[in-house]
Write a protein that binds this DNA or RNA. Structure first.
Ligand code: ZN
Ligand code: ZN
Ligand code: ZN
Ligand code: ZN
Lengths: 171, 171
DNA sequence: GTCATGTATGTAATATCATAACATGTCAAG
DNA sequence: CTTGACATGTTATGATATTACATACATGAC
């Protein structure tokens, strides 16, 4: 129902991409890709999981587990934390969503399927979040790891700063 | 009193550096640098703050705020969460400690003073943590940021994987 | 000195995030 | 129809973090 909203002020948003664009398209596209990937991998995209992904895509924001839970519960799914955490963990494992640790929140992946090591850019003024592929960052991290004999399996890269809109407004 | 210990099993550690080395030296050296930097910048390294840094340096591990609090309280400082969080936040702001989000923990900085954008390597088997400078990672992140008009102020880079010891043991 | 001001600390209460443990339901293979 | 694997629901609790307010301490005017 509601447009993009979530963490941060409603006015400011918390959008997963900075540029304006067609949300409905994102959502439809995202669900279609998720379906395809799940079918291919044999992962079971059950009703709660599917709906959880839709919620993330529709909100187009980073949402806390309890925000997701609220929406799920309002639609007749369980209303206890594990319901949301389990669905979210599944999505993260399948590469359909990401966890953003600085915000204690989750966001639908903008590039599912493609092998990617995303960087998240988080605006400290409006809480908007953008996911960008960053192969170069991954390579640099692994180079540093080799120097100390560490084997990298996953990396979390989150940058805090100002989105284009807030930088302009603040200037 | 106790040697290095904290998050994770006492046996396994959670050390802030993988290689064996002289803890006492680290601690003394670390406190001396902290003193010098605080004097230079005018920051007030008060008793709680000073002791908090010592605790991090001595433990030589990533410690949770409540673990730090426990130790502070045992020495007569306040025993409520804000006491620990305030001291830890101060240290992080001054660049004397880092917050490790994946572990909900804090660790003394191994390279205070030097401008650095650290990468943390976290062993998923033994919880050991190593801090490594990674200028190349910062540059790659900023390059990606420029592409979308984002202004980076701080970055968090945490890599999960296997430390040399655990990789060998597991192999 | 003492007064006002800013900063640091102490404490109580509460908010927020996350998981453990167990019960119930669903579905397909045997 | 039973069994086993997996998903979901629910209760309870644990772990992490912050708000709000009270108190103490420093510093610099007056
Ligand atoms: Zn992604
Ligand atoms: Zn912004
Ligand atoms: Zn450091
Ligand atoms: Zn290890």
């Amino acid at each position: 129902m509601a447009g993009p909203e979530g963490r941060g002020t409603p006015a400011a948003g918390g959008a997963v991409a900075f540029a304006a664009h067609d949300h409905a398209h994102c959502t439809g596209e995202g669900m279609a890709r998720a379906e395809a990937l799940s079918a291919a991998s044999g992962a079971r995209l059950t009703p709660v999981r599917r709906r959880t992904l839709e919620i993330l895509l529709q909100s187009h924001c980073a949402l806390g587990a309890y925000e997701v839970l609220e929406r799920l519960a309002a639609e007749g799914f369980g209303n206890q934390p594990p319901v949301a955490y389990r669905a979210l963990d599944f999505l993260v494992e399948q590469g359909l969503a990401h966890r953003i640790r600085r915000l204690n929140a989750f966001a639908a992946c903008m590039h599912p399927g493609e092998a990617h090591s995303p960087v998240f850019f988080i605006c400290r003024a409006c809480n908007a979040v953008a996911e960008a592929p960053a192969e170069a960052v991954r390579r640099a991290t692994e180079a540093a790891a080799r120097g100390i004999g560490f084997t990298v399996e996953r990396t979390t890269v989150e940058a805090l700063g100002l989105c284009p809109a807030c930088a302009e407004a603040g200037a």
